[in-house]
């Protein structure tokens, strides 16, 4: 490690370095906001094969209930779909990706969601109320073989978590 980065931090040094670095941080945030892909995202894949240079351009324009999904998508040359908002996942198809987004961020896809400001969800059970356990059916395209492990029947899971989801939804509607 560099000697500078090894110095024992203090509250003052943290504030100082955040101030120094936040210009860069703010710039990267605003840059990324500008780079959000409104109006579609083109992904370019290239390959060199037997002396030929291959370029494949794919344009994604994804909407959910008419609302555009503007996060960044990545396609690997093996055909896997990856996404900035779920950075450790890999999907077999973009449909599977969007289903996972709806599962993981249900509040983002509710009608009338306020984008800006503090979202006090302490009474809502958390990240938009994703059911503990999730809806596995929509994760079916993610590569997640279970090493031969037998899972509970999906129907049982669906019943359990659907009931919980309905309770949460009813609670929100009553607010």
């Amino acid at each position: 490690m560099s000697a500078e980065s090894e110095a024992l931090p203090t509250p003052e040094s943290i504030a100082k370095y955040v101030k120094q670095n936040m210009q860069k941080a703010r710039k990267s945030s605003s840059t990324m906001a500008m780079m959000q892909h409104k109006g579609g995202q083109e992904i370019v894949r290239e390959d060199d094969y037997k002396g030929h240079h291959v370029v494949i351009r794919t344009t994604y324009n994804i909407t959910v209930d008419g609302k555009e999904v503007t996060g960044h998508i990545m396609l690997t040359n093996a055909g896997q779909v990856q996404y900035h908002g779920l950075p450790n996942y890999s999907f077999d198809s973009t449909v599977d990706l969007v289903r996972a987004l709806i599962d993981n961020f249900p509040e983002d896809f509710q009608k009338g969601k306020q984008r800006s400001g503090l979202r006090d969800r302490s009474d809502m059970g958390g990240r938009g109320g994703r059911p503990t356990g999730g809806n596995r059916s929509s994760m079916g395209g993610m590569k997640m073989l279970g090493r031969g492990v037998t899972k509970p029947p999906k129907a049982a899971l669906k019943k359990k978590f659907t009931t919980k989801s309905k309770r949460r939804l009813a609670k929100r509607k009553s607010k």
């Binding site: 996060g71 400001g117 279970g146 492990v149």
Partner: peptide, 26 residues
């Protein structure tokens, strides 16, 4: 502070969430 579905930072006020072993078994 967490990130929304597009990866943007946002303010929240809630408890920590885990879904152990739900999206993958092992």
């Amino acid at each position: 502070i967490d990130t929304d579905s597009n990866g943007n930072l946002e303010q929240v006020n809630r408890g920590l969430e885990r879904t152990l072993g739900q999206d993958i078994d092992t």
